[in-house]
Design a protein around this nucleic acid. Structure first.
Length: 721
DNA sequence: TTTCACACCCACACACCAG
DNA sequence: TCTGGTGTGTGGGTGTGAA
């Protein structure tokens, strides 16, 4: 597989013909000349780098409701022959679209990415994968806001969940790319002579699904639209939050993918580009998109979303994300290698020849390239012999044929491990184990002499030789799940303990039969989660535990008078904030998500039980510099994610006395972080403290007390906030 | 009939272990 | 140390059924 195939091989089935169908279905039956032009422009556009601008949007109108890059989008539309509409389309024409990431108008709406992608490729692409589903919740909210403000109804305000985009390199076919042999090319297959893998382009043509958006289930971006948090998301190349896990269950057993979910999937892939083809990545994503299984998310990505992956974030050789000097992720259009590499014919041939040379050396103690003897003079000073003597003595006596005339025959070894180690060092495209396995399972089965002969013959005939295939016929293992099959929740539950099943069933039942994260957590194997980077962006908790740790005890050790003052404040506050009855808080509490808590959290039977355990953990004897151990214990014993407990510690300025209060108030008041609680510092509190204004300090003193203000100042001075 | 979500398949790359 | 057995899960699909 080409390393850059996703970008550089045009996905020809992605190019537009949907509108042509639409016109047949909906329009007036007039001949549409665009399709011919598109057909001719496909390859040209894809290969030309997009410099030769064409009127790809001719006859089409777009209402740009995307505030973020309105001017750019308008220029792109008009620059490519399209019409920029000054008001919302009537909905009667299938050639008019709204451009926005939110569809609150129930009109055909495409994402801004559609405009950009078409222009970058100079091709009118299929509109279907870029259609935005109608979001009736958002429409309701917009209407409410309009009613409250008395404003006229307007076009849907743009959602800011779209990540920043950059121009994509125009797709082109690279020389040296994976070239699949012709179907009639003979190949080294024992079991069938056909081509190894015919690339089956799934038919995407013929979609006239203008109503697809309206049919889809809408989701809860309404909450975000009110909070005004969207702008933050736009400005940073951070993924959209995971789609809400508390969305109403679909009326049927298959849920459509929303734009929000699509963007979430794309962002996780961008941050895990080496795992883009794996099953496990999508299974992990499914933990955060509970309406869909890993299988279906993977399918969704492969068939639809891969075309929209116009960039990924750069990773190092180990797959870890790389950041620039400012700490930002680096976008790239070059895809990193995936986890496993297919063996090519030239690799098979090179290995065959190298193994053959190894046998030749072993048998005849002669250098296969020079024909010189490898046996040192027996009287040599070091007394060592060249080469090894793995073969029988008879063969060693034999001067032997030239390497060219030598045949390996039935010989299978020995091949020292060192051979594969050295070979892997020189050919790092595969590991030592992989080279050895290729030798064992393919070369030995097919025949070394035979493959060399085949390969050289193909080259001589100016044909493209193929790699060996179909050499493995391991019997199916009875009772073992099919690899790469990440299906339904029910299947996962089957693997759980009886007690866990009962708990999961209870949660599902309490949830009206809908699967929620709490129940789902039982099905997630421990440690089977997205990488820390992804979790960070999911949780939004970017606290740096190492800072706290590196500050040693300084951040948590306070002078006696401050400690005394804080203790007094704490005692006075207890009646108001610490005597909330945990038995009145249902378990799991409403705010609990997988982003904040580990699966073992859900093993607690009640909120009280959870809080008792919290109290037990923080009562242990931790040194001031043992923040990391505390965080680890909270994770292991109570199921609080490290990122979450670190953020709480930061909000509490390390004051463990307030730790139970944080959870109690969070669950009771339904707010994370809990607001207006003494000892729990919010971002606004910190800004007020930093301002140094007398009025602000006065307010903070009333809220937190003088001792905690001193404590917080030290925390800020240590750069821990 | 078509589309799409979801289930399922299977060759094989890569790994590890025991004799 | 060599070797064979075999586990795991990637990579690239296809099959099925509801809407």
């Amino acid at each position: 597989m080409s390393q850059q195939d996703d970008f550089e091989t045009p996905s020809t089935n992605a190019f537009e013909d949907a509108l042509e169908h639409q016109s047949q279905h909906y329009e007036d039956g007039k001949p549409d000349t665009r399709s011919d032009k598109d057909a001719s422009g496909k390859d040209e556009g894809a290969g030309s780098g997009g410099d030769d601008q064409q009127d790809i949007f001719q006859d089409l109108g777009f209402f740009i409701a995307h505030d973020e890059s309105r001017q750019e989008l308008e220029q792109l539309v008009s620059g490519h022959g399209g019409t920029v509409l000054s008001e919302l389309p009537s909905g009667k024409s299938n050639k008019e679209f709204v451009v926005s990431t939110i569809n609150a108008s129930d009109l055909p709406t495409v994402t801004p990415t559609y405009i950009k992608t078409c222009c970058e490729n100079n091709v009118l692409m299929k509109v279907q994968p870029f259609l935005v589903p109608y979001n009736e919740f958002r429409a309701v909210i917009d209407t409410q806001l309009q009613n409250e403000s008395g404003e006229k109804p307007t076009a849907p305000a743009d959602d800011a969940s779209e990540t920043a985009e950059q121009p994509v390199e125009s797709p082109s076919t690279k020389p040296g790319e994976d070239k699949r042999p012709d179907a009639d090319t003979p190949q080294p297959s024992e079991t069938n002579g056909g081509p190894m893998a015919s690339v089956t382009a799934e038919s995407n043509a013929g979609s006239e699904d203008q109503g697809a958006g309206a049919r889809r289930e809408s989701v809860d971006s309404a909450k975000n639209s009110i909070s005004g948090d969207e702008s933050d998301v736009v400005k940073t190349p951070v993924a959209p939050s995971p789609p809400s896990a508390r969305q109403p269950a679909a009326s049927h057993n298959k849920s459509s993918f929303t734009e929000e979910e699509d963007e979430f999937i794309l962002d996780v892939v961008r941050k895990n580009p080496t795992r883009r083809t794996t099953h496990t990545l999508f299974d992990e994503i499914s933990h955060y998109v509970p309406k869909h299984t890993g299988n279906s998310i993977r399918h969704r990505y492969r068939v639809y979303l891969a075309k929209r992956l116009n960039f990924v974030y750069q990773v190092d050789s180990t797959g870890k994300l790389v950041r620039d000097d400012n700490g930002d992720l680096i976008k790239t259009t070059v895809l990193p290698k995936s986890l496993k590499n297919k063996f090519t014919a030239s690799e098979d041939y090179a290995l065959s020849v190298e193994v053959k040379k190894q046998f030749y050396r072993d048998i005849y103690q002669m250098d296969p390239d020079t024909g010189e003897s490898l046996i040192k003079d027996i009287n040599a000073p070091d007394g060592n012999l060249k080469g090894s003597f793995g073969a029988g003595s008879d063969e060693r006596q034999n001067p032997g044929p030239s390497f060219k005339d030598f045949r390996v025959g039935e010989r299978r070894g020995p091949v020292p491990r060192e051979f594969f180690k050295k070979y892997a060092d020189e050919n790092p495209n595969h590991t030592e184990n992989a080279w050895r396995d290729r030798f064992r399972k393919f070369l030995l089965t097919f025949g070394i002499d035979r493959y060399i002969e085949y390969y050289e013959n193909e080259i001589a005939q100016s044909r493209v030789p193929q790699a060996m295939k179909n050499m493995t016929n391991r019997p199916k293992r009875p009772g073992v799940p099919t690899p790469g099959n990440y299906n339904s929740f029910a299947k996962k539950v089957k693997t759980l303990s009886q007690q866990q099943q009962q708990q999961a069933a209870a949660i599902i039942a309490a949830n009206g039969g809908a699967i929620d994260p709490a129940a789902l957590a039982f099905a997630i194997p421990e440690g089977d989660f997205l990488d820390e980077e992804t979790l960070n962006f999911i949780s939004g908790l970017r606290r740096d535990l190492s800072k706290i740790e590196s500050a040693g005890g300084a951040a948590f050790a306070y002078p006696q008078e401050i400690a005394e003052s804080i203790r007094n404040d704490f005692t006075n506050e207890e009646a108001q904030f610490d005597e909330i009855d945990p038995d009145k808080i249902p378990f799991p509490p409403a705010l609990v998500t997988n982003e904040l808590f580990m699966p073992q959290f859900f093993h607690f039977g009640s909120t009280r039980e959870f809080l008792d355990k919290i109290n037990e953990v923080i009562s242990r004897d931790y040194e001031p510099s043992q923040a990391e151990k505390l965080v680890q214990d909270l994770c292991d014993d109570v199921g609080v994610r490290k990122t979450f407990s670190t953020s709480i510690l930061t909000a509490l300025s390390g004051d463990l006395m307030v730790f139970p209060r944080y959870f109690l108030c969070m669950f009771h008041f339904g707010s994370n972080p809990p607001m207006n609680i003494p000892g729990i510092w919010t971002r606004e509190d910190d800004e007020m403290l930093r301002s140094g204004e007398e009025s602000n300090i006065k307010k903070l003193t009333q809220k937190h007390g003088a001792g905690r203000i001193e404590m917080r100042k030290r925390f800020i001075a240590s750069d821990l906030v």
